[in-house]
């Protein structure tokens, strides 16, 4: 049923309001198989809201999410994880009081059975795995038993990234994964994004650093006031194009059929956007 063109995940006319704020007003977006998609936009454009809607933290007020071509309802982050989506949240979603290992396995801590009967946490396995994953995938060396509150901002971000990878997801969503990282650590994330791509994963990455966006992504989606201005091939645009679209909310590319489709597809966006 699925041919090669079926996007891995697609959102269609997604709307989300918070009280009077319309965070998403008819977003259409597709993430292809083995694609790295950048998501850019000004503060408050709706990037994080879109990510949170994709993983079931928010339920959309309208619109549809399709996974591998099939409409899906993603009830909660656990369901998203089981579907093969790993997420690094902008706020990292770490519990300060818990250890590195506990955080890495939060919500799915491995258990072992004492005497084949009583299920207890397998701390030893968690610690070993946490240490290994952090070392091998991010080149970070921390004691897995240390509570996360003792760690630096960069180490915390690394833990959040590692957690998104523990389940070996098909799709990795990264909401500003490098904002607290040093140059060296950013290089680790860069390598990670390339490795993910090489190994056939798909990635959506939100980043205010356009340099990173340009060197890491295949396509870039520009979000403005809760709608997609345009989705462009990274190689076909300049930095200025992107900035201009982020600020004006207008596509700058000549034949922006993509954007026309977008606006036509969403009723709520038409009034405000096609000036």
């Amino acid at each position: 049923m699925t041919n090669d063109d079926t996007p891995l995940i697609a959102v269609d006319g997604i709307e989300k309001r918070f009280g009077t704020v319309e965070a998403l007003s008819g977003v259409n977006l597709e993430l292809g198989d083995n694609e790295v998609l950048g998501l850019v936009g000004d503060n408050g454009a709706g990037k994080s809201t879109l990510i949170k809607t994709l993983v079931g933290i928010h339920q959309p007020d309208a619109g549809e999410i399709r996974y591998d071509g099939d409409p899906v309802t993603i009830e909660n982050p656990k369901a998203a994880r089981e579907l093969g989506i790993g997420t690094v949240y902008q706020d990292l979603a770490l519990v300060d009081e818990l250890s590195v290992a506990s955080n890495l396995f939060l919500g799915r801590n491995p258990i072992k059975k004492i005497g084949g009967l009583i299920p207890v946490l397998d701390e030893e396995y968690m610690n070993e795995e946490a240490e290994r994953i952090l070392r091998e995938r991010l080149n970070i060396h921390v004691d897995p038993e240390t509570p996360v509150e003792y760690l630096s901002g960069g180490e915390r971000q690394a833990i959040a990234i590692a957690r998104a990878l523990v389940t070996d997801p098909d799709i990795v969503l990264l909401d500003e994964p490098t904002s607290a990282l040093s140059k060296a650590a950013v290089n680790e994330v860069e390598e990670l994004v390339f490795t993910l791509k090489e190994n056939g994963h798909s990635v959506i990455i939100i980043d205010h650093n356009l340099e990173e966006i340009f060197s890491w992504t295949d396509r870039i989606a520009i979000l403005f006031n809760g709608r997609v201005v345009d989705v462009v091939d990274t190689e076909e645009v300049t930095r200025d194009d992107i900035v201009s679209m982020m600020i004006s909310g207008q596509s700058v590319l000549g034949d922006d059929t993509d954007a026309d489709e977008q606006t036509a597809g969403s009723e709520s966006a038409t009034s405000s956007s096609t000036a």
Partner: peptide
Amino acid sequence: TKTRFGRAIYAVGGDKEAAGEAGIN
């Protein structure tokens, strides 16, 4: 301290939102 559920209780107590985002009900 030794069960998954107990760990989830500490997680919810520490940061409810983070616990939810990490997939805890």
